[in-house]
Structure formats: structure tokens, C-alpha cells
Design a protein around this nucleic acid. Structure first.
Lengths: 189, 189
DNA sequence: GTCTATAGAGTGATAGAC
DNA sequence: GTCTATCACTCTATAGAC
């Protein structure tokens, strides 16, 4: 048989989309099998731990993606203000103006939260930490940089919820603009 | 046998908690049966449409609760600023500082969104509308009152996500304080 | 032969519907 | 309680690469 050799990493995008669309419980193995084009045997070959291991692999990839495209640029930027602007562009693209749910956020609200608690915690903690650092270097008062970073990261998550509920991606875009505009005004006393 | 007569309305709190904790897919009939103390037959007597009808009934009750305790006060308040403050108190209590998920928000991120789209949409639309009216009467510039209301409602949803992911209810409380403080400062030019 | 990737029948448990 | 469908998962078998 001409084997279409799959690597574990090649499966992650399809897995991620399936979990994003259907959630942890809703992503059945038969749906996953269909989405990846692989039989159950192959899936268990790559992920002996079953669905839980699949989600962990997806979360690890998401964290790695954000580390490269969001967290590192925030930490290393010579121009922290530009890095923050770039972050807004990147996540707006990534979440497709709220049409794509944040898997980490969705899992945090779901029954599966406890199972993946540490991964969920770390993703948001790293994001807040990186953003707070950039805000601080951009002149934000030291004492409130973390609070402001939490406001922003939370608002982004809320924008996804609201835009999906209202079925209005423009709402997501508008909230992003509002967050960016606020950063440009008074770094507050 | 002394029958403990149950009314459909009496079941809603237990149903709501079950859907909040386990989501739509995760709330199995046996879990619901356990939570309500009713057999499957009785559940189908009250909700012939099964789980979907249960969720619709719960969403209707949530909307009614918010109408009474949040939307109406915002609309009718003589002192709109005080009404907005009261709203923050009420929802902080209701969401228990993010320990309790917002069922409407969670469903909006889930697979079940399409099924209940109209209910989810209306809940947030009513909230934004009522809050925008209060902001407007409190002196907020007419053109940006709706945008500001969306920012606030979105931030509240995001605060629930973030507080749960970080496992820190204080984060929810702090974001609420930050939203309230911002309202008290410059109504912006 | 060994190893890796594959498929899918078959397991018991549990789902939602009635 | 009874129904059938589907669940996550196991196991055996197989094909080709080395």
C-alpha cells in the first residue's frame, strides 16, 4: 500500500480546528478520524493517551506559536509600543476577528478545565507577563502594568465571546481599536 | 406514596448549574437526572424536546433574571451612574468573582452556539443596549456610548475567562474595579 | 526479521430518546 | 425501564521501509 506517511506534527492543525469547533466532549474520535483522514489505530499510535493527549499536544503547539509570534516579540522589542501594536494585529489575524474561538479560553470555561488546568494557566500567565513587561518599558507606571496587561488580555477574550454571540466580527475589530487607542492616550498618572 | 410534586420552574436552577459546570455536551441526562433527582421519564415529561428544550428554558430564565436585576434598573434609574455601579455589584455577585461561568458566554464559544444563536444574541444585545442608554444619560458622549457598553460587557466576559484560567478570582474583582474606576474618570472628549 | 504506520472489527459503557 | 446509536478505547492484522 502506498503509505501517506503522516507525522504527529502534521495532524495538529486539523486536531486544533476540530477541538476549536466542537470542544473537548464534542470532538468525537470519529469526527477526529474524519478531520485527519486517519483511522483510530493510527490516532492511537501517535497519541496513546487518546483525546487528552491530543489536546495537550495541541495546547503545546498553540503555546509555542504564541511564544514565537507574540510573547518573544513583546519581550525583545526595541520599540515596545510598536510591539504592542503588532500584537494586536497578530491576534486579530489569529482569531479571525472572533470568528475563530480561542481554544485556551473555551477550554477554560468548559468541563475539561481541571484536566488541563496547568496548560491553560501558563498560556495566559505568559501572555500577561510579556505584555506587562512591554507596557512597563513603554512608560506605563510600574505598579499598574500587570493590571493593565490583564485588562487587555481579558478584553481580547471577551471580544471573542461577544463577537460570536452577537454574530458580529466588526464588534471584535472595534474593541481591538478601542484597546489600541487607549494605549496611545494618557499612560495615566 | 407522598409525591414530591415538582414544577418545571423548580428544576431550572439545578439544570442551570449542571449546564454551567459541564457544558451542553458534558451535561448528560444521567447527570441531569442526578442533579434534579428526577428520572429520565419525568425529565421528558417536563421537557419533551430533551436537552435542547432544557437549555432554552434555562436561557429564558437567565434572561428574565437579568432583565429584572440588571437591564431594567439600568433603563429606569433616576441616577444612571449609581445604576451602573449597582450593575457591577450585581454581576460580580452573580458570577461569583468568575468562579461561576456565564452560561451564555460559554455556550457562545461552544459547538452548541448555532442551535441557540438567537437566545445568545439577544441576551448580549439587551445588555449592551441597556448599558449604553445608562452611559448616555450619565453624560457619556452619544456617539460612543454603545462602543463603551460593548467594551464593558466584553470585559466582564473576558474577566470570567481569565480568572478561571489563572484560577484567581481576585483577577476578576480587580478587572471590575478597573472598569468602574475608568467610568468615574474622564467621560472622554 | 524489526520497526513504524496503517486500518478497522470488536469491547463494554453510556449516550439521548422515548 | 428500554431502546438503538455512539462513545472512547483495545486489539489484531497488515503493509512497506530498513
Amino acid at each position: 500500500m502506498a503509505r501517506a506517511i503522516a507525522a504527529r506534527a502534521d495532524l495538529l492543525p486539523a486536531l486544533a480546528e476540530t477541538f476549536r469547533e466542537h470542544g473537548y466532549e464534542g470532538a468525537s474520535l470519529s469526527r477526529i478520524s474524519q478531520a485527519t483522514g486517519l483511522g483510530k489505530g493510527s490516532l492511537y499510535h501517535f497519541f496513546p493517551g487518546g483525546k487528552a493527549e491530543m489536546v495537550e499536544a495541541v495546547l503545546a503547539e498553540i503555546e509555542a506559536w504564541f511564544a514565537t509570534h507574540v510573547f518573544e516579540p513583546l519581550r525583545e522589542a526595541g520599540d515596545p509600543e510598536a510591539a504592542i501594536e503588532a500584537m494586536f494585529e497578530t491576534v486579530t489575524d489569529y482569531f479571525r476577528s472572533g470568528r475563530r474561538v480561542c481554544l485556551v479560553g473555551a477550554l477554560s470555561l468548559s468541563d475539561a478545565r481541571d484536566r488541563f488546568a496547568e496548560d491553560l494557566r501558563r498560556y495566559f500567565a505568559l501572555w500577561v507577563e510579556a505584555l506587562a513587561g512591554a507596557l512597563s518599558r513603554a512608560g506605563h507606571p510600574e505598579g499598574t502594568a500587570t493590571a493593565r496587561a490583564e485588562d487587555i488580555v481579558g478584553s481580547i477574550q471577551g471580544a471573542v465571546v461577544l463577537a460570536r454571540a452577537l454574530d458580529r466580527p466588526e464588534t471584535y475589530d472595534r474593541i481591538m481599536l478601542s484597546l489600541r487607542a487607549r494605549g496611545r492616550l494618557s499612560p495615566s498618572p
